[in-house]
Design a protein around this nucleic acid. Sequence first.
DNA 1: GATGAATGAGTGTTCATTCAT
DNA 2: CATGAATGAACACTCATTCAT
Lengths: 197, 197, 197, 197
Amino acid sequence: MIVYFNLMRIKDDIKQDALFEATIKLVNEIGFAASSVSKIAKEAGISPATIYVYHKNKEELLVSTYIQVKKTMGAIIHENFDDSLPIRDILKTIWFKMFHYIARHPDYFQYTEQFSNSPYQSLVDKHEIEKYFDPVIHVLLRGIEQKIIKNVNFDILTAFIFYPIVALSNARVCQDFEVTDENIETAFTLAWDAIKL
Amino acid sequence: MIVYFNLMRIKDDIKQDALFEATIKLVNEIGFAASSVSKIAKEAGISPATIYVYHKNKEELLVSTYIQVKKTMGAIIHENFDDSLPIRDILKTIWFKMFHYIARHPDYFQYTEQFSNSPYQSLVDKHEIEKYFDPVIHVLLRGIEQKIIKNVNFDILTAFIFYPIVALSNARVCQDFEVTDENIETAFTLAWDAIKL
Amino acid sequence: MIVYFNLMRIKDDIKQDALFEATIKLVNEIGFAASSVSKIAKEAGISPATIYVYHKNKEELLVSTYIQVKKTMGAIIHENFDDSLPIRDILKTIWFKMFHYIARHPDYFQYTEQFSNSPYQSLVDKHEIEKYFDPVIHVLLRGIEQKIIKNVNFDILTAFIFYPIVALSNARVCQDFEVTDENIETAFTLAWDAIKL
Amino acid sequence: MIVYFNLMRIKDDIKQDALFEATIKLVNEIGFAASSVSKIAKEAGISPATIYVYHKNKEELLVSTYIQVKKTMGAIIHENFDDSLPIRDILKTIWFKMFHYIARHPDYFQYTEQFSNSPYQSLVDKHEIEKYFDPVIHVLLRGIEQKIIKNVNFDILTAFIFYPIVALSNARVCQDFEVTDENIETAFTLAWDAIKL
DNA sequence: GATGAATGAGTGTTCATTCAT
DNA sequence: CATGAATGAACACTCATTCAT
């Protein structure tokens, strides 16, 4: 009986996962508006009706897919996070991790880009996302305290230390930027020059 | 004779304009996917069929609206463009002009943000857009030549001298950044620190 | 067990049938071009969207309706088909069966007439239709072999042994021809005189 | 002034003609339902509104186009009509003339075929069409009187002496029948065998 | 839990026709 | 006479969602 129950759970997870991947794949291929519930279902190999077993509605499917990607990204850039290193080194490490993560999962990244410019984005609890990136945020705050980083509005800091990664990773925005370790290093120099005191 | 000409000209500029404004307003209010042709028509006070007198299809309506906004923006940031000023001053002037333009037309800006992350974006002739921003681009190139600006990949430069404006103007991304002359000045300092040699 | 099977089978034969009859009725009443999907749906008492559960699109609905009529017609004219009778008798029997079938289902016949002159006709696999009429065809071939029927191009034979039935059954073409056994007999005499050696 | 008036009239006729040809061409190419007023207008090189100067509405345009083709066909098959020849020769001459006319104007013929199976057909005054074919009709009547042709219902006669021409000329119906003088002669033999006493 | 069938509401688009010019 | 602009009504079709099974 227990075995049976476990098999059920496994089955669930497989479907859940297929749904996650199908959603991202389809949104990237045909865009947000054209990704209908039934197309996503077909891509995932399940019935449209089954989606409603796992998710309240389409919105909730897209939002939870977004959150899951963001959560994963947060976890990955903080792997082996060492708070004791110099601030510049910590940030540089995170730059590399982000670029490498995006390079490995361009589809995940592209999904978040599309999502965060869609009307669905307003349905996300911002604090839930932010908490996945808390450790880096605290590094910046510490940098300000230690007078290593400019004491300016936090949004300004973000616009120079994180947003350029997004821009440079977005093939639509930057077509000539090749993601090599050397180029990442160069780009990071500008970021650091921008925020350092 | 002039009266005759006015009587002759049939395609209605007023309608054309209403359509332009309605498209932008609706896309901002309910997002790209939900902005149907009939809703846009209703907002503009015309029949859905009339849209097809002015535009081949929905795509073309959205794309031409985007191009028009970009064109206007390009024109405005180059108003009184003075090539003889120091490079830093030219760029700073453009920063202010962009922020002010966006502040005055937040809806236009928001439209371009949504558009450039939609599947429609791939339908735009990139070169047509780029030419509206040629003068600034040449300023950067001159800065590199004169060894005032870092000699790095152009996409990297763009990611630090233009993209932060987009990030900071995007209320969704930066909710704490208040657009005041002082804050713009501060933010520009970081941009200049990033790109200057 | 049978009850269970009935409960299981979901796609509704009753709806399928209603759709078939509605399509034919409407096309006969208002013509092919005016028979819109929604009108057909209303006539069948179902939602327009439901049509797309049973048929890929309008074309496919019309084509499959045509094929079904042709199939039925083929089956009926070959009922009790007796290959051992004299060729003239076989053909005469088929003449009567066709006239009687058409008289009983003038709407089915009229539908095929309209269909085969519409652009949809090119979508039909001709061989699929022809196979329903194979037995008669073979009778003609046998007649030629046995030097009972003129040895001429098969299309010519068809134009005299089958096509006149179509003409005479078409109320639009022949308004004065009353379908009585006597008149059919008379007309068949001409057909036989035409093809016999 | 008269010259001016004449020029106007000529211009009219050119448009009228272009409209006639455009209607037939388009209906043959894309079918009846898809041939919209504006497409016909574009094909004819005039404005859709102009069509309504020459014709009350779409129906009337299609009907009058049909009548004109029928009229032309009637005129051509009666060219050099010689009532004094033997009946068989007269009919054979008409067979050849019809086949040759259709071969020369397959588009005109195809138009009438499509038209006479469309709902528009009911709008035609049958008597107006019939009168264009009066002379042949009288030949048949004379044949009956002289006991050369079978004394049967006139529709039956028509179904064997005229309808096969339509069938054999219709590429959709008869794909293997090549229109050569020899084949026409052969086919006529069957027609004559059918109707002769 | 999983699903195929069903649908009302909506989609983008074209239609025949009118009208001011 | 000729027309470009305009439109209400309709088109074929897809949508997100529900429900009986």
